[in-house]
């Protein structure tokens, strides 16, 4: 018993440290957002705001077009997510359901896209968006992201887990491909599809680099871009306000994750186990 406990402590120490390191910036962010300027720049370590103030939040909501940024971000994240999940499910279904020449080759090429660094794609994508006249519009951010190799891969793994006789039974009952997809496949992969949808949404919501390149006018900015305004020299490093924006930015993804945690975990576990 004793040795088991010792062993557990040994294992837990580095894990606790890792969790702390992960959480520290978030705690720091939350705490700073409730502090006024004087508390932020004290010489002593004051992890908790005393007294807490809501001034930063009031400033953000009153003096900045915060809701415009929320709308921009939400529009882009929603459209990107809808497009990505639709293409992922449709492509994955085709990879499982249809037999066609070169199926494996196409799938393997698609897997290769995982390994292409995003920086390599930025030039061609930027030029393409520029030629299409989509720079400085939400569409320029959305268009290059409507399909996702990882999404197709995850959905394919899930659909492959559905026993083939189920699809055949539906086929014999007279259902067509669309019928099988909507009446049999989608209800069965719902948990995984929800998880991947949330994953896509959070990813798109937090995206910084690509919108930074495409969006130039401030009124088109998304939340992560707006955040940068408060930290740069221009905003005079308003840490309290910056942290309040950061807090508000992370609320939605955090809530989404908390509510759908079980789907997300099971999906990633499943993709590792099944093959």
């Amino acid at each position: 018993m004793r040795t088991k406990l010792d062993k557990n402590i040994l294992w837990h120490l580095p894990l606790i440290l890792a969790v702390f390191l992960q959480l520290w910036p978030i705690i720091f962010m939350a705490s700073t957002s409730f502090k006024d300027m004087n508390q932020i720049f004290t010489s002593t370590l004051n992890p908790l705001p005393f007294p807490p103030t809501l001034n930063n939040y009031v400033a953000v909501l009153e003096d900045f077009p915060f809701w415009t940024y929320v709308y921009n971000t939400f529009l882009i994240a929603t459209l990107v997510t809808v497009c990505k999940i639709a293409t992922s499910v449709l492509a994955a279904f085709a990879f499982v359901y249809y037999e066609f020449k070169g199926k494996e080759t196409i799938f393997n090429f698609m897997l290769l896209t995982f390994f292409i660094p995003i920086t390599v794609l930025i030039m061609p994508n930027y030029l393409l968006m520029s030629k299409l006249g989509l720079l400085n519009t939400p569409w320029g951010v959305i268009l290059p992201q409507i399909a996702d190799g990882m999404g197709i891969f995850l959905m394919r793994q899930t659909i492959r887990g559905i026993p083939k006789p189920l699809l055949e039974a539906a086929l014999l009952e007279g259902a067509g491909a669309i019928g099988i997809l909507t009446k049999v496949v989608l209800p069965l992969i719902k948990p995984s599809a929800i998880a991947v949808t949330i994953f896509f949404f959070i990813h798109s919501w937090n995206e910084y680099f690509w919108p930074l390149l495409v969006l130039q006018d401030k009124e088109n900015y998304t939340l992560p871009l707006a955040l940068q305004m408060f930290i740069s020299a221009e905003g005079g490093s308003e840490w309290g306000i910056a942290m309040a924006v950061a807090m508000l930015t992370s609320v939605l993804p955090l809530l989404l994750y908390l509510f759908c945690q079980k789907y997300i975990l099971s999906t990633f576990l499943q993709s590792g186990v099944k093959g």
Binding site: P163, P165, A169, A170, L172, E173
Partner: peptide, 20 residues
């Protein structure tokens, strides 16, 4: 002729009932 057009009823070994 497609399976759905053959007017066939089939019982599978593992029943293939739709779980949902």
């Amino acid at each position: 002729v497609a399976p759905g057009k053959r007017n066939i009823a089939m019982v599978f070994q593992n029943y293939a009932l739709f779980p949902h």
